[in-house]
Design a binder for these strands. Structure first.
Lengths: 172, 172
DNA sequence: GTCTATACCCGGATAGAC
DNA sequence: GTCTATCCGGGTATAGAC
């Protein structure tokens, strides 16, 4: 078998290809089922289980990858305002992936160790390590993007201005 | 039939009783299906359709009620900090209802007219009507509760302190 | 206003042949 | 590593009898 007892990496090249296809499917259609994933790969659904223990392993891989990708982008940000832009851009570019990362329970036991923490680190650093401020900033940023993705703000709302107002509030 | 073409109020007393049972089911089990709702009422699922056009009508009623209930509580708040407490308390007391209100698409066409706006009004008032600040505050509050409900903060995190830090940031 | 019966959809996952 | 055949669960909703 190409997965360990927890369904964790290292994964076989074939398993990685399946995860890549799942990512495309998620971003294109907003969801992943084992059947549709198999269709996209030109195989039958039961064959997937030779490479992935179960659907949870697939989701854990997608989420781990997403945290690491987001972390790389967040690490480029030079200050709080650039971090806010990077956060929003990541979420708007990958709305379904973002929802997979943040809605529903996070399967921490199955994630690549350290992936979640690596994405969080730039947020903590941006407020000088103050945990209360970091949590408030995190909540603000997540709230802004998830409400924007959900269409909760009025049509003409100036979200750049709301972001600026919020980031300014956490700058010091 | 006891519902109009949009599945909107006024609803028959029986329909209201069904919505009340759905609310209990949602809060108790975290979800509502027509089958389980019927079980709880001691009837069969198809009978529900004599009272509600479809499941969407049921959800719209649950969400409308929730917005009006939240609005009543928010209107009691004397200042921004009391409003924050009221917001958090409502979400923590009704986690599944809160998720129904905010995750997934909001069926605005089917809600009781003005319900969403009435819940939003105290938030806007608390920041003196400044829309940018209101949106930032809304995002912060929603982010705090949805991350708390999702278990995203570390176990020992002092969320009271994070709330205080955020609300202070939006106080002026 | 309730019932039975049913249609239709979707999902995850396994056994065992090749 | 793929297949076929299948099992299991779940869901929304309708038709038509009573």
């Amino acid at each position: 078998m190409s997965f360990d007892s927890a369904g964790n990496p290292p994964m076989s090249p074939r398993a990685r290809a399946i995860v890549a296809a799942a990512r495309e499917l998620l971003e294109a259609e907003g969801g992943v089922s084992m059947r549709r994933l198999a269709d996209r790969l030109g195989i039958k659904a039961p064959s997937l289980y030779k490479h992935l223990r179960d659907k949870g392993a697939l989701e854990a891989a997608l989420i781990s990858d997403a945290f690491l990708e987001a972390a790389e982008r967040f690490e480029q940000a030079g200050d709080l305002f650039e971090l806010g832009s990077a956060y929003r851009a990541f979420a708007l570019e990958h709305p379904h992936l973002y929802r997979l990362m943040f809605e529903g329970r996070l399967p921490r036991e199955r994630l690549v160790p350290g992936a979640e923490e690596r994405a969080a680190a730039p947020v903590i650093a941006a407020v000088g390590g103050d945990p209360d401020r970091a949590r408030a900033l995190y909540a603000f940023a997540h709230g802004m993007v998830i409400l924007e993705l959900g269409g909760r703000f009025p049509d003409g709302a100036d979200l750049d201005a709301a972001w600026a107002r919020g980031l300014r509030a956490f700058a010091t």
